[in-house]
Structure formats: structure tokens, C-alpha cells
């Protein structure tokens, strides 16, 4: 069993994506042995009003809810975000959100973002935060969205110990408090592996050693990324089946409330 915590549907503004419909992504997942995936709208990253993208996503996965788990994209500085949040949760049946502070022009420390974190936590929604969308070197001439600073995420995690966070598309956590052993941070966040390697410096192994196998989850970034590197790093991870199962699906299943 593999659950991908970092997948997308829809169009991205700056590059054509393949396998970005429910049918084609499911075909890719079948080919790669990935059972379920958390998906959000790639289009919502650059939309001003993200809610139509959330609605389109929900419609796209409607007949595949057993495998595609939709997360909404909500901008806490856009009019009506509380209505959108309520709709994402109550009408569209979403179990979490993805936040794009860099793309939506706010900071994680802004009071508006804290309002969103509070509201999502009250609803039991997972807050999924991609530290980047694209590699900075690939960026279009139109935009310059820097990676989220780990310190901003650390502060948010500290401020909301009852919230649940998934940190996506990050790297070098072990050189920050987020990936170190023995910090005063709450254990309310999971780290996703798409950019973290299990050979050479082996950050994946270091994170498991520092935080525990319960804190690391599989994610690929598909269809932005080939899913194969993430699958490969899990395969060659120097760990037993128990640890690999936790990373591959058990941790995500527990957070998503999925039956084993």
C-alpha cells in the first residue's frame, strides 16, 4: 500500500502538465503501484479566486473518492475565505487544505493566516504547506516566489500545537529545528519525502532517526514530478518493512482517518 500525500490535478500556469486529470493520474498511479493520493488543484496556485478550482477538483474526483482525496486551496486574504473554507469542508468533503503564502502574497505569521489556521484546526482539517512549487531556477520571467523559510513554518507550528501540518516539497530539514532531535516543537507535523534523498547524506534516514518513523510520509509531487524518484528512495531506504510501511502509507492513513 502506498499513499501519496503530494499530488495535483489541473493546469499549472507556467508549464504543461501530463497526467493531470483524474483518469490519467489514476492510470499513472496504477502503473506505479500507488494506491491513494491527496490531490489539490494546480490551477488554484495562480488563481486569484481559488474556490472555482476547488469545486472543479471536487467534481473531477467525485467518482474516485476511494483513491483521490481532495484538499482545498484557500487564500485567507481573499474575500469570502471563511465561506470557501466551510464549503470545502462541509460541501466538498475535503479533509485538508494546501496553503500558498508566497503565491498568494501573505506571510504565515500574518494574523489572517492565523485566523485560517484556527478555523481549519477547529474543523480538524490538515494544513498542508508546500515549501515551493517549482525550483527557483526554473521560474518564469513573470514571477519570483522564493521558497518558504523554515523559520516561518517553525513559528506557525509552535503557535498552533493542536493543528496538524504536512510539509511538502522541502529539503534540508535536518539543518533546522524542524528536523532535529530534542527540540521544543510540538510533534504535530509530518515531513514529506519528494525532495529528500535516502542515499549519500540520507536525510530521510536522519529524519526517521531524529523524529521517528511516525513523522515522515511518502509524497511524489506528481504530476509536476515523475513519481519514480520518490518510489525509488523508499525502496532503497535502509530500513525494515515496519518503518517503510509507516512512511509509505500508515502515517498518512492515520492522519486521514482511513481504515487500515
Amino acid at each position: 500500500m502506498i499513499i501519496d500525500t503530494n499530488a495535483y490535478l489541473g493546469h499549472f500556469a507556467f508549464r504543461q502538465l501530463r497526467n493531470n486529470t483524474a483518469a490519467s493520474l489514476l492510470k499513472l498511479m496504477d502503473d506505479k503501484g500507488i494506491d491513494k493520493a491527496i490531490v489539490s488543484s494546480a490551477s488554484a496556485i495562480t488563481y486569484r479566486n481559488t474556490q472555482p478550482a476547488n469545486e472543479a477538483l471536487a467534481a473531477e474526483v467525485q467518482s474516485h473518492r476511494d483513491r483521490l482525496i481532495p484538499f482545498g486551496v484557500v487564500n485567507p486574504f481573499y474575500a469570502g475565505w471563511r465561506d470557501d473554507l466551510k464549503a470545502c469542508h462541509e460541501t466538498l468533503g475535503m479533509k485538508g487544505l494546501r496553503l500558498y503564502p508566497g503565491w498568494h502574497n501573505y506571510k504565515l505569521a500574518d494574523p489572517g493566516c492565523h485566523d485560517l489556521a484556527n478555523a481549519a484546526t477547529e474543523r480538524g482539517l490538515i494544513l498542508s504547506i508546500p515549501l515551493r512549487v517549482e525550483d527557483a531556477r526554473d521560474r518564469s520571467w513573470l514571477v519570483d516566489v522564493p521558497d518558504l523559510p523554515p523559520a516561518d513554518i517553525t513559528a506557525l507550528i509552535k503557535a498552533f500545537p493542536k493543528a496538524r501540518f504536512m510539509l511538502l516539497n522541502g529539503l534540508q530539514f535536518v539543518s533546522t529545528p524542524l528536523g532535529r532531535r530534542g527540540t521544543d516543537l510540538p510533534t504535530n507535523y509530518l515531513i514529506e519525502i519528494s525532495r529528500i534523498d535516502s542515499v549519500l547524506a540520507n536525510e530521510m534516514g536522519q529524519l526517521i532517526a531524529n523524529l521517528g518513523a511516525d513523522r515522515v510520509v511518502f509524497g511524489s509531487g506528481m504530476p509536476f514530478n515523475y513519481p519514480d524518484p520518490a518510489l525509488l528512495k523508499l525502496e532503497v531506504l535502509n530500513a525494515g518493512k515496519d518503518v517503510k510501511d509507516k512512511v509509505a502509507w500508515k502515517n498518512a492513513a492515520q492522519w486521514l482517518g482511513l481504515a487500515p
Binding site: 506505479k32 534523498d197 535516502s198 542515499v199 549519500l200 515523475y226 513519481p227 519514480d228 524518484p229 520518490a230 518510489l231 525509488l232 528512495k233 532503497v236
Partner: peptide, 14 residues
């Protein structure tokens, strides 16, 4: 270029 699983994975996935 030292991104080992990325390098191998993209060829495997192509």
C-alpha cells in the same frame, strides 16, 4: 550530478 535517486528515478519513470 549527485542527485542520485532523482537521476535514476527520472530515467526509470520515462
Amino acid at each position: 550530478d549527485m542527485s542520485m535517486t532523482a537521476g535514476v528515478g527520472r530515467i526509470r519513470g520515462a
